[in-house]
Design a protein around this nucleic acid. Structure first.
Lengths: 199, 199
DNA sequence: ACCTGAACACCGTTCAAGT
DNA sequence: ACCTGAACACCGTTCAAGT
């Protein structure tokens, strides 16, 4: 890759990060090329489709969340690892407004440029879920794709200005349901031995 | 309203229903006008904004769901009323692909044409929730807007082809969490008298 | 090799001209 | 009163012409 091409590539990615954060996944391609100081044709040479551009933009973040899952798996209890990973992943997805739909469409389309990153992230979450399930800390009737679906739905909530402030609390309710916890009484701490945990 | 204007209005609405069902909330306005056999100007005379058109399209459905809440409140146990209403409302929202976001944005914008219908529907759901809460059948730490948020998130799930088949099951998990039920063992039917139902 | 922008076929929206 | 479509400023995308 020639030096000028490399520079254009980097500038396009930087511009895309800025414009997509401002205007969402449907941002104007022309705006991105303009912001990068590059001709439209150059942009299409580097990224033949909008999805290819989003892919390059998201791969870094996705790979980071997959790696984060590994760290959490090693350092935390299975349930806490899962909770932390879910919260951070929702927050990360929210950083790219509106991309969640493309992300989810990519997971079952092997031809999509986003496919690899999506599958890797789903696997990372699925591993954490399996750990929690093996420890008897999470319900057994959901899988990694269900987890992915919840992340997507909650990231979508975070994208709605009217609902964003409630996202954390609603995520908490879903996490409770996944972890089979019962935290309904706000005054009672989970340290109280209220549930029968016999095998 | 003149007879020809009335006819154009109705044809625009019918065309919008068809095109929006096919292409979602971002459907081409020109397509709708063309499908209706009406000039662009005529369309903008009747519906000055895209939101105004969506509003007219959705108001009927929203009002129906509000009325449905009244029926259910009168005819069913509070928890079953809430479950049924949630499922039907998610299905109804899904019939208008992608409009959920506009619907939710409208709820806190009194100037939006959708505002009235949204608030009415939220109130209907909130009433069912309050009934279930009063009967001790639903958790007390959520309100009508939370319910609305769950409906939106689940309708969004139903809009994603890759996740649509799981929507019902995931809705069930959320409903369980709202109703404080524990149906985690798939083999056990709820007919088993496991919960104390004394009043 | 790589870059560029005129060119094409669209889009949402407006408004002068029609009946 | 109401309808219409040319006109404007955009958009995504391509491709012949340049270096």
């Amino acid at each position: 890759m020639r030096a000028d091409a490399r520079k254009n590539y980097d500038q396009l990615l930087a511009a895309a990060r800025e414009i997509v954060a401002r205007d969402g996944a449907g941002a104007s391609m022309r705006d991105i090329a303009r912001q990068a100081g590059v001709g439209f044709g150059t942009m299409y040479r580097h990224f033949p489709t909008r999805e290819a551009l989003l892919e390059a933009l998201l791969r870094t973040g996705f790979d980071a969340m997959a790696a984060r899952a590994d760290d959490l798996e090693a350092s935390s209890a299975p349930d806490e690892a899962l909770v932390t990973w879910l919260r951070e992943t929702i927050a990360a997805a929210h950083a790219y407004r509106g991309v969640t739909a493309s992300m989810i469409a990519a997971i079952e389309d092997p031809r999509s440029a986003l496919h690899g990153s999506c599958v890797a992230m789903r696997s990372a979450g699925a591993r954490l879920l399996a750990q929690a399930q093996a420890a008897g800390l999470a319900r057994n009737d959901i899988d990694g794709t269900d987890l992915f679906a919840f992340v997507g739905a909650l990231a979508w909530l975070a994208d709605q200005p009217a609902l964003a402030p409630r996202t954390d609390r609603l995520a908490g309710i879903i996490v409770e349901a996944i972890l089979m916890r019962d935290l309904r009484n706000p005054g009672v701490m989970p340290s109280e031995p209220s549930s029968p945990v016999d095998g």
